[in-house]
Design a protein around this nucleic acid. Sequence first.
RNA 1: GCCGCGUUGGUCAAUCGGUUAAGACGCCUCCCUUUCACGGAGGAAUGAGGGGUUCGACUCCCCUACGCGGUACCA
Length: 519
Amino acid sequence: MSSAQKVRVRFAPSPTGGLHLGGVRTVLFNYLFARRHGGDFVLRIEDTDQTRFVEGAEEYIQRCLEWCGLEPDESPFKGGPYGPYRQSERKPMYREFALLLVESGKAYYAFDTPEELEYMRSSLKTAENPNPQYDHRLRMQMRNSLSLPQEEVDRLIQGGAPYVIRIRMPEGETIGFRDMIRGEVTFQTGQVDDKVLLKADGMPTYHLAVVVDDYHMKITHAFRGEEWLPSAPVHLLLWKYLGWEESMPQWAHLPLILKPDGNGKLSKRDGDRLGFPVFAMDWKDPKTGELTKGFKELGFLPESFVNMLAMLGWNDGTEQEIFTLDDLVARFDMDRVHKGGAKFNFDKAKWFNHEWIKFYPAEGLYELVEPLFAAKGVVSASAGSRGAVTRERIVDVIRLVKERCTFLTDFWDQSYFFFEDPVEYDMVAVGPKWNEKNKAFFEALSADIKQLVDFDAALLETNFKALATAHGIKAGELQMLFRVMLVGGKFGPSLFGIAAFLGKEKTAHRIDKAVAVFG
RNA sequence: GCCGCGUUGGUCAAUCGGUUAAGACGCCUCCCUUUCACGGAGGAAUGAGGGGUUCGACUCCCCUACGCGGUACCA
């Protein structure tokens, strides 16, 4: 590509289900690179395999990208100058180029049936060669336009015999390219098999489609998972054979995200097994009805999800770990992407979310937390309307408890006592400390509170301590009991702050109620 | 089997020939707080093995081992 060319990158998922971590990170790196260089980010759907295409998956991908804030400039949904953006809608052009390759002798027709291929593989299979390949050593023994006489080929094609088009890999060439992450990578063409380019149903395989699409969509940089590295020589040759070598994008093969225990690529199963999500958002498989949990629904902020993924395989060389999307765009550099795969660590993911919740302004958290509160019956309303909690009050609560929430879904458990009386008390904690003397203190405290005109945390604390002294009890001994009376358990923010927040009636009421329960 | 890519603490990782080999997560101890957290101080824990090159290798080269990926009319 010429240096004057505008940077264009693409994310090309196949709509076969939920978007897992590796997928989102690939989008992220594509997006960051595009934005970093003022370029375009293109979403292209690879729906060439009808057997794996899943209804609704395309829209799901769109929603995930939206949630993460990684919206494409061009996509099947919003269009763009290089559409269509679904491979199924570009079908005719793939065939055209496959035929062109046959004409120039770089590809050939193959008539072998699936059964014949199966037979070839099983009969040639040995301990030394468990996976016989359809390659230069074997192709003349198979039924194709290289091994068959021309008349036979014509007859088969005219007779409507099904066929695929395979690339004809040369025998003894060394071919290579410069990967942006790995440096020079080379392959011997003779080691690579004659990959199918065009399937019998007329659809292209990934190999043909990426090349044709990337060329026509003027893609300048192609980033994909490391699992694609072995097929790079096929793509390299295709760019060359099609005469587009000058326009070939620069490639980077991203390291894999590995399962936390053992080795290997992280899969949906690992999440189920180890109890964490592997998809960005909840995904319900329409065929099986099976639900796979997502980070969003678990209570992740999109910012922390993106931040966490960016740090899996990349860092800017400093000690900074918390980045906004804008920070990432400003700092991202493909040269600093790791070569080795990274094991996913859910504890670290949780830490990122916790950090983000702590730093996030309470006002901003409101929109995300309010629906969760509403689901519990806490209806927010503008100040003044009866029976409802004001937005300001909810924001105050969020501010008070956010540092102890790891997930957005923790907010209710950490703050329900601001909205309703505790229904259960931690009697295990209360039991050993509850006695007649303490009971008398709390009865007095309740009466005292009811008489107060002003009621704030500082005043309450002063009164509380004075009263404790008057009763000959150390204030500290009583605080835990007071806490359980107000919140039900041994947790939550500053005690007197909670009481002040509740107001004197509710505070006194909860004391009375607890005294009755404690006995 | 063949081909390709990898390999710094349990995990994420810095280092681009000279450092006491950072930092973070997790774990442990202590402080703060008579709650849970937050915060603060400290601790244990790392260069797969073997050869080179070099005055000097975690860093460069080779071999081995190990891991992963690919080896489909799936992507």
